[in-house]
Computed example of a mutant assay.
Amino acid sequence: MKRARDFFNATGNFSVKFGSEREELVVINDGASDLTFTAGYTTFTLKPGEVFDERITEFTSLTITAMGSFRGYVRDDA
């Protein structure tokens, strides 16, 4: 069973490296402008107010480019 872990929230650009591979990601754009993130081979743009909640190709790092605030987490085995 997957559980939420490695929570993050920030304003502006952000990057994090995880200790092991992850494959489930949640990002919530709380800002007033677009947010772009890259996790593994996935690059995606979120409009203000949108939520990304997906299983994607395994990744060990996450980079977010944003002007506003955002929050999120990854899911991993309990």
Score class of each variant (00 low, 15 high):
Met1Ser: 12
Lys2Tyr: 13
Lys2Ala: 09
Arg3Gly: 10
Arg3Tyr: 08
Ala4Ile: 07
Arg5Asp: 11
Asp6Cys: 07
Phe7Thr: 09
Phe7Pro: 03
Phe8Ile: 05
Asn9Arg: 13
Asn9Trp: 09
Asn9Phe: 11
Ala10His: 11
Ala10Pro: 06
Asn13Pro: 01
Asn13Tyr: 01
Phe14Glu: 10
Ser15Trp: 08
Val16Cys: 06
Lys17His: 14
Lys17Phe: 12
Lys17Tyr: 12
Phe18Cys: 05
Phe18Asp: 06
Gly19Ser: 11
Ser20Phe: 13
Glu21Thr: 12
Arg22Tyr: 11
Arg22Asn: 09
Arg22Leu: 09
Glu24Lys: 12
Asn29Ser: 05
Asp30Met: 13
Asp30Pro: 05
Gly31Met: 01
Ala32Val: 14
Ser33Cys: 08
Asp34Tyr: 01
Leu35Lys: 00
Thr36Leu: 04
Thr36Gly: 02
Thr38Leu: 01
Thr38Ala: 00
Ala39Phe: 03
Ala39Asp: 04
Gly40Asp: 09
Tyr41Thr: 14
Tyr41His: 12
Thr42Phe: 03
Thr42Gln: 04
Thr42Leu: 07
Thr42Pro: 03
Thr43Glu: 12
Thr43Phe: 11
Thr43Met: 06
Thr45His: 02
Thr45Phe: 04
Leu46Glu: 04
Leu46Met: 08
Lys47Leu: 05
Lys47Cys: 00
Pro48Gly: 00
Pro48Asn: 01
Pro48Leu: 00
Gly49Phe: 02
Gly49Glu: 03
Gly49Leu: 03
Glu50Trp: 03
Glu50Ser: 09
Val51Ser: 02
Val51Ile: 09
Phe52Trp: 03
Asp53Gln: 08
Asp53Cys: 03
Glu54Val: 01
Glu54Gly: 04
Arg55Tyr: 15
Ile56Thr: 06
Ile56Pro: 01
Thr57Glu: 10
Thr60Gln: 11
Thr60Ser: 13
Thr60Pro: 02
Thr60Arg: 14
Ser61Asp: 13
Ser61Cys: 07
Leu62Val: 07
Leu62Lys: 07
Thr63Phe: 14
Thr63Asn: 15
Ile64Tyr: 04
Thr65Phe: 00
Ala66Tyr: 01
Met67Cys: 12
Met67Phe: 14
Gly68Leu: 02
Phe70Met: 11
Phe70Leu: 10
Phe70Ser: 13
Phe70His: 11
Arg71Ile: 06
Arg71Ala: 14
Arg71Pro: 06
Gly72Asn: 06
Gly72Met: 04
Tyr73Phe: 15
Tyr73Val: 02
Val74Lys: 00
Arg75Ala: 06
Asp76Leu: 09
Asp77His: 15
